[in-house]
Nucleic acid binder design. Structure first.
Lengths: 207, 207
DNA sequence: AGACTGACAGATGTTGACTTTTGTCATCGC
DNA sequence: GCGATGACAAAAGTCAACATCTGTCAGTCT
């Protein structure tokens, strides 16, 4: 009988399923191995530690968050509206994960608390997406900014309440959407947002 | 021999000292009573529960935070500079507390996690101080705002990273002051900050 | 009579013996 | 030889017996 080869990919799928079922507190490497019908020693042939396995699961999962955001960031339209949609989508995605996949979300929250590398990379990816939108906006004359990267981080910090899982318990507060509106409107002003001048549409003027 | 009467005030002092020594996890009502040389039953004559006692200690402590801030909020000078100083002082005070009084700070962090009333009042007090500065700024023609109270809350949410104790572990990061600068500069723009027009100094124009 | 006590019940926390889990590695089978 | 195994040591987690703590109240002292 042909057994399917044990690959990192298959382990990740099984691990995600096990995490989804038992949560980060109860899921063990033995559970993952059992789901695959192998010994737990075999899992250690593909991942150096349980932590590495958990990080890898989280990384896949975080990529599924940042991919739709990357699409928005790469759009061509007006930057202020795009940034608004991007931030709204980020908040919406995180909230949805927290609601619909509480066990995987708990795994992510643990990673954030540990300040693990996966999270740093994820956050940097997102900040660079914001920076891209801001740069577009500056080129299109819609934003007034000295340094889009610094501003991108500032936007990220200022909206922490709406995407950092440490604040997840506040996401069901009744006033949270109004709070988001308030912060957004402050940020839009802080970025010097205005209608793109018609001339800038055709060809951005120098500097 | 004349024993000093057992008052709520004396209990609070002893409780604060006990909390400072043992932290919120280890301090007991019996410890507080022992420090005062009375039975723990007597403490319950003045506070209905351990929680109420802890809240009362935290309230005293939080007042010591918000009082110097209230002084800054009540100053007369230019509002943008005043807001900047107010936010900087808030951040500085919280960081100092976290560094110098870790046990009392842990008590406060627990209260925040429990979403207790004392904290809600503290946060509302602070937001109203911000609102006051913003209102002054609008009257002096230094800010452009539809609704200073909404903006005050937005400022508060956007700066959560720099005063919410849930983020205390990030306050020793090397980049934290730069992050604060970045967020501040975004906020200042978002408030429509500008030099106060000379005419406004004498008498604010209507609306 | 009112402030305080101390014994008490139920809730909460601690301890330590025991179980499970993580991670390693010599060995196996294809 | 390569991937997998399973026996093993060390680390971490469980759980029940035990200890402490919270909150109450009948009763003492002044």
């Amino acid at each position: 009988m042909v057994e399917e080869a044990l690959t990192a990919e298959r382990i990740l799928e099984a691990a995600e399923e096990v995490l989804r079922r038992f949560g980060p507190a109860k899921a063990t490497v033995v559970d993952v191995a059992r789901a695959l019908g192998v010994s737990h020693g075999s899992v250690y042939r593909h991942f150096p530690s349980k932590t590495a396995l958990r990080d890898a699961v989280a990384e896949r999962w975080l990529t599924r968050v940042s991919k739709p955001l990357a699409e928005v960031a790469a759009e061509k339209g007006p930057a202020p509206e795009r940034l608004r949609r991007w931030l709204g989508l980020l908040f919406e995605l995180k909230r949805k994960k927290a609601r619909d996949e509480p066990e995987l979300f708990a795994t992510y929250t643990n990673l954030v608390a540990d300040a693990r590398d996966v999270v740093r990379v994820h956050v940097e990816t997102l900040a660079m997406q914001v920076a891209r939108i801001l740069t577009d906006g500056v080129e299109q004359g819609e934003f007034t900014l000295d340094d889009p990267v610094t501003s991108a981080w500032a936007v990220f910090h200022a909206t922490a309440r709406f995407h950092n899982p440490i604040h997840a318990s506040e996401w069901s507060d009744p006033g949270i959407d109004a709070a988001f509106e308030g912060v957004w409107s402050l940020l839009r002003g802080g970025l010097g947002a205005r209608e793109a001048p018609a001339k800038a549409r055709a060809k951005p003027s120098k500097k």
